[in-house]
Design a protein around this nucleic acid. Structure first.
Lengths: 256, 256
DNA sequence: GCACTCTATCGAACATCGTTCTAGCGTATG
DNA sequence: CATACGCTAGAACGATGTTCGATAGAGTGC
């Protein structure tokens, strides 16, 4: 019995909205009998939107492109969704739902901080190759039900630590902010040529490293210092390294 | 002798670009002799763009709105800027430049980690009430000269800590990602009514807290647990709290 | 079977945005 | 005076989000 949109209030229901049709796993295709007109569902609309976002990025999600993919007209989409913002919210929420099902078994009996770590990593994994999520995650977190659930799940781990409510609130918010910040980074770094495959990623990174070296050890000693590390680093590893720093701070605070 | 755009390569110079007119502090107004036609400058264009972004947000920055503000036509803007992306990059870079001048005196003789802290706080302060920066900060960080300078300035502090180059790289990246994550959060939380001033912020927060309580202590124990903290918290304080957790982790790593 | 209602589909039409194109002004240079 | 070039300016184009009205299908009452 999960409720729908308790906190949301994102839109005031422009004309009407479908009765949310229980969890029928119908999939969404017109598959049925001999219907001539296409039949859709909120699920299929959002799912195709996510697919489109994954393939072409945020600017690739167009109402017309989505309509063509669904084999329908533009107007039909507006029956299920009041605006593009709501479409993106629902898309982000659907991905969050996936993260939730992957993390249901996590946490509980082990080290609480390790539970946070695993949830955060699962969260991060969902953002990889999904740049569009970065921008909408925290917006979603505070609004939609799945975001709140994830937030709560992580927070539940902190309740087993010796911290004040305030410290728990700050800790969970910090971890969330860190994940979103990394996600925002990932999506925006490669400047088009790399994403298209026009230029190989390694070549780009190498030339970037050379440019970092050219900046000179005098004016930019740190960049010069880490040029090699930059060229060799792995994003996922760096994420875990930063996360562990944050978690070490939390652990230290709890042991005091 | 600072160089211009060594690493950038953002645009291939559509038709031509002004000779960057040295650091003349002219401001940008047509002020001069008896010119009849309006005269602009890259500085004035970017400055007005920042002002427009601050007032109306990212969606408020329109080429037409910007042109009207400058008292010119749309086409004129394209003489200074090749695309809206470049305009946003330059806007973000200008704000970064402001952060840099405010942090020049920081770091050096005190505790290195405290230097990082102060730079990060100044960085954060620039993002307050500037939601549009969150999305473009890291893109800018890796591309424009001011972003690299800020990155380097923070990294220089880590070089005085007993860490490997890799650990320094990870630490600075983590702090940057955290700041951006918090910034992305700040900008997207208030859902329109609050930003317009239609609803008082306190009223909104209070009703949100009540909704968090309604979610129930059974399904969302953590949200129930921190409902009061949420209503009473201050964003800047929470940022510092999270930052200190991260810095504590870095300090611990350096002392090992 | 028939009229009627409600849900849902669909595409034309509109406003707005980023961007391009071309005409032309004004200044400097010969 | 004539020519070249830096820069201004707005009309025009294609794409996008959104609205609106027409209409088909399924269910309902008689």
């Amino acid at each position: 019995m999960r409720r729908e949109q308790t906190v949301s209030g994102a839109s005031q229901a422009g004309r009407g909205r479908p009765p949310a049709r229980g969890g029928s796993a119908r999939g969404g295709g017109p598959g049925g009998g001999g219907r001539r007109r296409a039949s859709h569902s909120l699920e299929s609309v959002v799912s195709e939107a996510v697919a489109l976002l994954d393939e072409a990025g945020e600017q690739g999600l167009t109402f017309r492109a989505l309509a063509a993919r669904l084999g329908t007209g533009v107007g039909s989409i507006y029956w299920y969704v009041a605006s593009k913002d709501e479409l993106l919210e629902r898309a982000a929420d659907q991905v969050l739902a996936g993260v939730l099902t992957q993390t249901t078994h996590l946490g509980g009996d082990e080290d609480p901080i390790d539970g946070i770590r695993q949830i955060a990593i699962a969260f991060y994994a969902a953002t990889v190759n999904r740049p569009w999520l970065g921008s909408y995650f925290l917006q979603d977190t505070g609004t939609q039900i799945n975001g709140l659930t994830l937030y709560d799940r992580m927070g539940r781990e902190t309740m087993r630590l010796d911290l004040t409510p305030r410290q728990r609130f700050d800790a969970v918010s910090a971890v969330m902010a860190f994940v979103v910040g990394v996600a925002a980074d990932r999506g925006q770094d490669p400047p088009q040529e790399v994403r298209d495959g026009t230029i190989d990623r390694d070549v780009f990174v190498a030339s970037f490293r050379d440019q970092m070296r050219e900046l000179g050890a005098d004016d930019f000693p740190f960049l010069h210092h880490i040029a090699d590390e930059f060229a060799a680093h792995d994003d996922a590893e760096q994420f875990r390294a930063g996360l562990d720093l944050l978690l070490a701070g939390i652990r230290q605070q709890a042991h005091r």
